[in-house]
Write a protein that binds this DNA or RNA. Structure first.
Length: 335
RNA sequence: AGGCCCAUGGUGUUAAUGGUAGCACGUUGGUCUCCAAAACCAAAAGUAGGGGUUCAAAUCCUCUUGGGCCUG
């Protein structure tokens, strides 16, 4: 008995079968990869010192429903890892889970600010790290649920974010310069100052170039990219759907959002005076609906564009998630 | 039935003097340390089919197939 237990500990959940990134089956085929997910999760929780359960997946893949089921099972609290659910007044477009569906499970980092007060990634990371610690002291299990890859990485890879919030004036100056001389000009500038960063940033990718220059301008040091070891014991569950089915779900969901009053939601945001350059206003389901409200496009056209953009987004999310090599992909139906 | 016109990736093309088959959208793959639901990169994929003229055909001729318009 003892021997057996020792054996299992030695093969703790962190060492469970990992599929090498490039030999991996297409996710749609790997859906049945591990039927003992829940058993493994429970074992993981018995052994983990600072457990953090993560549920990720592209938009419309069924994360929310899964998160409730799992939270009930393991006595969890849910922290949203979604860059747009942070904002109040965008509940329909961001598919924020309504209070009455939360089944008494505490949810964090949803509607914590307004669109005119964007949260930086560093702020998100600090707040979330704090929440995780609080949940641990309550002897409950923190669960990160959401689809913003960068935010997930910031937490689980413990990003060391230099405390340099975006410098608006400096950015404007560089943007003007780019307009005049082209983004390649700025890229060449970066090449001289921080060649390592320049090598990874394409000359057309102006926002990245500006950010790297900004870091250097303010701190005098180069952009960091080194990953740190995760401060948490991590168990990642990925929601996987065959691509065609996911796209169908996305299309249907957009139609449903319109029925629920997405247009009114966007009208209210505009009436509140939020400017288009704010990150919240560039969200899916906001920027696509504005042309309809302003009479430039028909609702049908806007819906099609929103569906298309959401499909593109889902695809980019999948690309990001493939970088994590320890995701247990499951089909939402299997839960 | 006769006459006229058309046929280019999955879609669109009012792209290509007889001389490298291009563009856009979509699709797929990727990049990523604070605007990330953003921004950016890349790839696959086409001349409806057969024959002919020519050094060379998407382009000219011809037949077939498919589509459109006009006449009856």
């Amino acid at each position: 008995m003892k021997v057996k237990l020792f054996f299992r500990l030695a093969n703790s959940s962190f060492d469970l079968p990992v599929i090498p990134a490039y030999n991996r089956l297409p996710m749609s085929l790997s859906t049945n990869f591990n039927p003992n997910l829940i058993t493994d999760l429970q074992f993981f929780l018995q052994t983990a010192k600072t457990p953090l359960v993560i549920i990720l997946g592209p938009t419309a893949s069924g994360k929310t429903a899964a998160s409730i089921k799992i939270a009930k099972l393991i006595n969890g609290e849910i922290i949203s890892t979604d860059s747009r659910q942070l904002y109040k007044g965008m509940e329909i477009g961001t598919e924020s889970i309504p209070e009455n569906e939360r089944r008494n499970i505490p949810h964090h980092m949803i509607g914590v600010t307004t669109p005119d007060k964007p949260l930086t990634l560093a702020e998100y990371k600090d707040l979330t790290t704090q929440k995780i610690a609080e949940i641990h002291t309550r002897k409950k299990i923190p669960m990160l649920v959401g689809g913003t890859g960068l935010y997930i990485s910031a937490i689980i890879d413990a990003y060391d974010l230099p405390s340099i919030p975006p410098d608006k004036k400096f950015r404007e100056k560089l943007e003007k310069e780019a307009k005049k001389n082209g983004s390649k000009f700025l890229h060449e500038k970066l090449q001289k100052i921080d060649p390592a960063a320049a090598a990874t940033i394409h000359p057309n990718n102006l926002p990245y170039i500006i950010r790297a220059l900004e870091i250097n301008h303010i701190t005098g040091r180069n952009k960091k990219t080194a990953k740190s070891k995760s401060p948490y014991d991590i168990f990642i569950i990925g929601m996987d759907q065959p691509r065609a089915k996911l796209y169908e779900r996305i299309n249907n969901r957009v139609n449903l959002q319109i029925e629920k009053g997405l247009v009114d939601e966007v009208k209210k945001l505009l009436a509140a005076g939020y400017k288009e350059y704010l990150p919240a206003m560039s969200s899916l389901g906001v920027k696509e609906i504005i042309p309809y409200i302003e009479g430039e496009k028909s609702l049908g056209e806007c819906v099609e564009i929103l569906q298309k953009n959401t499909r593109h987004y889902a695809k980019r999310q999948m690309t990001w998630f493939r970088r994590y090599d320890n995701v247990r992909w499951i089909s939402p139906d299997k839960l």
